[in-house]
Design a protein around this nucleic acid. Structure first.
Lengths: 224, 224
DNA sequence: TAGATTGTTAATCGATTAACAATC
DNA sequence: TAGATTGTTAATCGATTAACAATC
């Protein structure tokens, strides 16, 4: 219940958690590593190792108690205590995140959003306040906000980041497609969609050129 | 120019590319691995290894020719040829992605969106069509769409995924917070924001409990 | 030429997988 | 008890980093 957990094992935890929580409560109360792995596309040994690091809900022959597992993973991830956050940049992506209900289940509570455009300020459809950027630093400090979410255009991201940090924010979740530099001790997590896309499109083009090569080798001639 | 590139090196390529493209064209035309690494937060040896795998724009003593590097990375990533895609789920996140202009620079062109809610159909503010779900399969087939982006709620994601695949889509970019199963040969890339968030909030709580421990050890008593 | 910087081969590190012991 | 399934220790694999040779 406090063995080392690799960064990658850590990022699988919410996947386990989400699946387990969606399980019907009336059915089986236990699940095996094999079954879990099959459903989630992980190897069963990996599942056992991951779960052993955060829980002792596993019993030989029986598998893991679903309810115990859920609370152990939640406790490990710290989802039992809610994290307050602010979001900066009330553009489309920002407002989409603002109104996303799923964050609650991950222990994240966005208390307010900020935008430099006064026109965007006021109450959002999500029911949350969008405030002028001037109020950011003060509010963060007053409410002891530790997490800032950046959804502004790349050009303003560094500046906004610094504003958050001077407001006392200790962790920055960056959706702007740019590199941010933060002082030592501040946690930075980039959500790099361009990187994901690169992996996807590269795999796709590799697959297609492999197909063509195979066709040529089968004597079907130049496929294109 | 065709050495092995690890999955992680691959996902750094768009980061290099983005930075290089933002560089002023009038200034220095060359850049060193050291300077690049410093700006992007990578080690200089890693930068050299990454770049050596996709380009030969590096010259000892001079560094890398920025313009050559840009075209080599673009060629490697296949960004010279545009990939057409469809998006399914015209909720807030879907519409945010639909109107995001940055995908162009990554060789992605979303040709249309789909939604099961007829009320959402019609022309989006982005100028792109939102069509009823019934037209999805046929349009994919006709236009030979190879990439599908899923931004529907978790409950509908698997069904939508199957629809895409039956329309001939070969790569699925999944933003729904759920595991999808796809047949062998279909590429699946999950955009798991819950996983990112887990990493962020875990690091934050680890940091804070480390601080408390340190304070206790300094004899400052229980910090809370 | 000498020095700076690249590129490659070898060493280290971290994560996954395999083998097997523990146990209900 | 026997069999199934967990948990752990060791082996493998992949990615990063270090050392150094190549070169402009």
């Amino acid at each position: 219940m406090s063995k080392p957990v690799s960064a990658q094992a850590l990022s699988r935890m919410p996947v386990y958690l989400h699946y387990l929580k969606a399980l019907p409560t009336d059915k089986e109360t236990n699940i095996s590593a094999k079954a879990l792995g099959l459903k989630l596309g992980f190897g069963e040994i990996q599942v056992r190792k991951d779960l052993a690091a955060v829980s002792d809900a596993g019993k030989p022959k029986l598998g893991y108690s679903v309810s115990e597992l859920i609370s152990d993973i939640e406790a490990f991830l710290g989802y039992d205590s809610v994290n307050d956050a602010v979001l900066v940049g009330a553009g489309k992506l920002g407002r989409a995140l603002l109104s996303y209900e799923g964050f609650k289940a991950n222990g994240l509570n966005i208390v307010a959003a900020f935008d430099s455009d006064e026109g965007k300020c006021g109450k959002d459809e999500s029911g949350k306040q969008i405030l002028p950027l001037e109020k950011l630093e003060n509010l963060c400090r007053r409410m002891k906000i530790k997490i800032g979410i950046i959804t502004v255009p790349a050009a303003q991201a560094q500046q906004v980041c610094e504003l958050l940090i001077s407001g006392g924010v200790e962790a920055v979740w960056n959706f702007a497609p740019t590199h941010l530099s933060v002082p030592q001790g501040v946690i930075l997590k980039n959500e790099n969609m361009a990187a994901s896309l690169a992996v996807l499109s590269k795999r796709l083009s590799d697959k297609n050129s492999a197909n063509k090569t195979a066709q040529v080798m089968q004597g079907k001639g130049d496929p294109k």
